[in-house]
Amino acid sequence: MHERLSFFVKRDSPIHRLNPMTKAVMALSLVLIAFLSPWYWTPLALFLFVILPLSLVARVAREYWNFILKVILPTLIILFIMQAFFLPGESRSIFEVFGLEITELSARLAFRNVMRILVMISSFTILLLTTHPSELMSDLSRRGLPGQFAYVVISSLQIIPQMQAKAQTIISAQRSRGLDTQSSFLRRVGGILPLVGPLVFGSLVEVEERAIAIEARGFTSTRPKTFLREIQDTSFDRALRWALIACVILTLILRIWLS
């Protein structure tokens, strides 16, 4: 069981040193530009000329490619094939099998859609590889996000791996009792409740004690909060954020103007 659910790789790089909010704005801007841009090649260009250099500057290229190749690429390939075959597009056929065909138009559309999704996943991946979750939530709380949000996010990140481990234990326990994934459909349906029951009830009972424990530590205090983590926010950060927002607005204007 991994202790925590976090991509974060502790390194020293210019990207790591950026303010977390700046990186979050960067990730969102990249996604919005990829989806809003009126030009066909924008997602690919963003990937080649922004995402890849970023991963190198941030010194997380190895981790980034590891994740993309192992986890994301297989899904993207399936998505591309399905879309290329089934997206409607009346144009020159370039490939045909079992009466299904890929046309030039459907292939073009499929490629753009897949690139957009790649940019979306990549920009968030780089954000998470270079930003510790506590740092991000601390910074957002300082900027006025209610402390409860930070609590929910960080707590989820810690509870999920614990719950995954519990689910695995339950699954293997049930398997050893003969409940196989190859059993009949009805047996598997009947198998849900004994599997899910203990997991859910067990974790719900803990809720009350944890609520008491954090109340005892001023969780609902109305006094102004302070923060243990000190997070830098330079004038460069601020300038970069405004520039990114300007790029998004520009893309939006071009999109409306050109269509």
Partner: peptide, 25 residues
């Protein structure tokens, strides 16, 4: 069940209550 879950290290865990009640850093 007394671990807040909101923090990654023991040091931060101890500081959790103090952040909530606004103790200077």
């Amino acid at each position: 069940n007394q671990i807040s879950g909101a923090k990654y290290t023991v040091f931060e865990e101890l500081a959790f209550g103090l952040e909530n009640i606004g103790i200077p850093r």
